[in-house]
Computed example of a mutant assay.
Amino acid sequence: MMVSNTTGRVFLVGAGPGAVDLLTLRAARLLGEATAVVHDGLVSDAIMALVPASALRISVAKRRARHTLSQAAIGDLLVELALAGHAVVRLKGGDPFIFGRGGEEVDACAAAGVPVEVVPGISSAQGAGAATLMPLTHRDHASIVSFVAGECRGLAAQNWVGLAGPGRTLVIYMGLAGSEAIADKLIADGLTPDTPVAVIERATRHDQRLFRSLLADLSGLIARAGVTSPALIIVGAVARLGVADSEILTLAEAAPCPIS
């Protein structure tokens, strides 16, 4: 592939929650112009189909306890590709600045003098709420919404008091594996065991699934339903709202609109 001898540019692009037609127009255009795409494992095949056949495609998929590249190595890779003259799209599920480590990649590019831009995407939380008609805020139920990472260091030492409860919605990313510890943590910090919870798997995609239960049963629900990543956990009164669990299958059958 022929690339410029001058320094290229890195675009940190949010791929949104999964459905191809939830990409922003800017994201779709940049994908079509990219000469190299460094992508996460959760980016759908339909979105990757927008990448030119001539472009380099490099997966840096991360799974629990198994990373293709370390975060530092990903930063180095983006810099290397840009210095070789590529128009680099770093494609991330959701939004780059919501648990996407976009800040670390901006720092890596800036330290090397590589031009970098961030293209926001619809967050996974927004997509999950919209796909199930479950508002994250509601005048009658929640005026505060918080996002937390469930797969993080020092969970037991963190103070989650005030993140969930009456008038609040808590959205937990990457919480499947630690769901039992998360529920125990929330209850220990003052949340009642009968607090409503919802688990939304593969939101906005054709095979999305929705499950509801109570906080004390969160890990049991995930195990019984065989929930796999990507999935979000929503804690609070709004978890009762939206479509019925059985109706989610009807919504999932709707064909996405193609981006032209």
Rank of each mutant, 00 (worst) to 15 (best):
M1P: 10
M2T: 15
T6M: 13
T7C: 15
T7E: 04
G8N: 07
G8W: 13
R9N: 07
F11G: 04
V13F: 02
A15Q: 02
A15W: 00
G16D: 07
A19V: 11
A19C: 11
A19W: 04
V20A: 13
V20E: 03
L22W: 01
R26N: 10
R26Q: 07
A28C: 08
R29D: 12
L31H: 09
L31R: 02
A34C: 09
V38C: 03
V38G: 02
V38M: 09
L42H: 02
D45G: 07
M48V: 08
A49P: 06
S54F: 05
A55P: 06
A61G: 06
A61T: 04
K62R: 09
K62H: 01
R63Y: 03
R66F: 00
L69Y: 08
L69G: 07
L69H: 13
A72S: 12
D76P: 00
V79L: 07
L81E: 12
A82K: 06
L83R: 14
L83H: 12
G85F: 06
A87P: 00
V88M: 09
V89Q: 01
G93S: 09
P96F: 10
F99G: 10
V106H: 01
V106E: 06
A110F: 03
A112N: 09
G113Q: 11
G113V: 11
V118I: 15
V118W: 06
G127A: 02
G129C: 03
A130I: 09
A131E: 03
M134E: 04
M134R: 12
L136M: 13
L136H: 05
H141V: 00
I144S: 14
V148M: 10
A149M: 11
G150N: 00
G150P: 03
G150F: 03
G154C: 00
L155V: 06
V161R: 14
V161E: 13
G162N: 05
G165H: 13
G165W: 10
P166E: 15
P166G: 14
G167K: 05
T169V: 04
Y173I: 09
L176N: 07
S179T: 04
E180I: 00
A181K: 09
D184S: 15
K185N: 02
I187L: 09
I187T: 05
A188G: 11
D189R: 13
G190W: 05
G190M: 12
L191C: 14
T192A: 15
D194K: 12
V197W: 08
E201K: 01
A203T: 03
R205C: 14
D207M: 13
R209G: 07
L210Q: 07
F211M: 14
F211C: 10
R212L: 05
L214G: 00
L214V: 14
L214A: 08
L214D: 12
A216H: 12
D217M: 03
D217V: 01
L218K: 05
G220Y: 02
A223C: 00
A223V: 05
R224C: 04
R224D: 15
R224M: 11
G226M: 08
T228R: 12
T228F: 01
S229H: 03
P230V: 11
L232M: 14
V235T: 01
G236D: 01
A237M: 11
A237D: 15
R240F: 00
L241K: 10
G242E: 08
D245V: 15
I248F: 05
P256F: 10
P258Y: 13
P258I: 11
